[in-house]
Design a protein around this nucleic acid. Structure first.
Lengths: 157, 157
DNA sequence: GCATGATGGTAGCATTTGACACCATCTCCG
DNA sequence: CGGAGATGGTGTCAAATGCTACCATCATGC
């Protein structure tokens, strides 16, 4: 029962190295550091800012800060700060939100679109470089798994 | 060439939602938040402290702070702070490192071992709860993939 | 229309995290 | 031996992140 049988399917003993929350955080940090060190720094964007740019670029009709928060699960404060910074830099603009004066539609300015056009390919290229050694099948399965884990947690564990 | 052919194997267009560094960070944060909210808080441990406890518990002969940093890739400052906190709480002790007076072997005190014995099962149980809906095969593949990504990056991308 | 509570967004504060400089000790080499 | 540089660890400061309180506007009920 309390044997150290190595063939049992579940580890009865905690080993940090095999502890999934730890592994996940470990790898995520490794990847994030790699990403943060490259194109982000190059364009003087912090991660939240980069995410805003990407999300706003994808949403043709404009999107509110709350919408961004919902999509990315970033704190609304984080979103707010990133939005302010981007507007100040002239990369993003706030269009009046008809019907609600508290809110705005965020859209990229011309400069913002240019930046996005410059950064996006670099992001993709970096992604390809990091994951070059894996085949598409594996990566697809991996991504699917990530999404399922999200779902599991959001369902309420 | 620059067509928008949807059947190509690689996405030529960036979509944040499919961008792996983003997905990874997203899921990792979700899991971390879940973890941080439970047994960690219960025992008044922060994540780095919890990791130190686990690592030291696993290394029977004691381990130095630098060793911990190497294993977990935590910053040496983070390790230092966690170590100080744990020693102050009487959970960990520093044994002289024969041959190098700058360093110490970290070992758990009796209280530390007791805490570990109390926390570890809860950690495993939480892990099981989060990942209950997946079968062992999938999880093993997933973990393997995480390790291979680590290797890819540490190899120098 | 006008209190009352909810919501989008911001400001200020506390906490966490890492970068950098520093001290003590160790190692190496003349 | 005894400098010169490397390494283990800590103190200090700046940047990042999140919480709470708050302001403006909205929606609802009287």
């Amino acid at each position: 029962m309390a044997s150290s049988d190595a063939s049992s399917s579940e580890p009865a003993q905690l080993r940090l190295d095999d502890f999934l929350p730890y592994r996940l955080s470990f790898t995520s940090n490794l990847v994030s550091d790699t990403v943060a060190g490259t194109y982000i720094a190059l364009f003087d964007l912090r991660i939240p800012e980069w995410r805003l740019i990407a999300v706003v670029a994808e949403e043709e009709g404009g999107i509110t800060q709350q919408g961004i928060g919902a999509r990315t699960r970033m704190d609304k404060v984080t979103v707010s700060r990133a939005a302010i910074a981007l507007v100040e830099r002239g990369l993003m603009a706030r269009m009046p939100h008809k019907g609600d004066k508290r809110s705005h539609h965020l859209v990229l300015t011309e400069a913002g679109r240019e930046l996005y056009a410059a950064v996006a390919p670099k992001a993709l290229e970096l992604e390809r470089r990091i994951f070059a050694r894996f085949d598409p099948e594996e990566l697809a399965a991996f991504t699917r798994m990530l999404r399922r884990i999200d779902a599991a947690i959001l369902d309420g564990v």
